[in-house]
């Protein structure tokens, strides 16, 4: 997967930028090409706050190329959109349904010792 693909994904990975339909106001993450609800193509960038709660979770990830094997979760963001992301800085047995989490940027993938490093969103329990 390569350099141009990640170049296109920067804003999604680094800033949790999805989009919002100008006609029906529905929000999406990752960004969509056509609004699935009203079929409009008038979609503009929308940056999510990064705060949400856990809707489901599991552990076990692909081994090769991944920076860390760890928990994965479905997270319901405060804007009402659900996303899939890795969890970090939390032990598996501390995770619970409805737990409040916040976005951080971590290393997601590493293409070998010579290859690209991919950074992107993960979520952790809120640090106060």
């Amino acid at each position: 997967m390569h350099i141009p693909q990640y170049h296109r994904l920067k804003k999604q990975l680094y800033r949790l930028e999805g989009n919002v339909c100008r006609e029906c106001s529905h929000k999406f993450f990752p960004a969509r090409i056509v609004c699935p609800d009203c079929k409009s193509r008038q979609l503009e960038p929308f940056q999510f706050s990064g705060r949400g709660e856990i809707y489901s979770f599991t552990r076990g990830t692909l081994k090769s190329h991944y920076a860390q094997e760890g928990p994965i979760a479905l997270i319901k963001l405060e804007e009402g959109v659900t996303i899939l992301s890795q969890l970090t800085d939390v032990d598996y047995d501390q995770i619970s349904f409805g737990m409040k989490v916040e976005m951080v940027i971590r290393k997601i993938r590493e293409y070998g010792p010579n290859g690209l490093l991919i950074y992107g969103h993960k979520f952790r329990p809120i640090l106060n």
Partner: peptide
């Protein structure tokens, strides 16, 4: 640092 952390993160 954890396995998914480095100077950049």
């Amino acid at each position: 640092p954890g396995p998914d952390e480095d100077t950049i993160t």
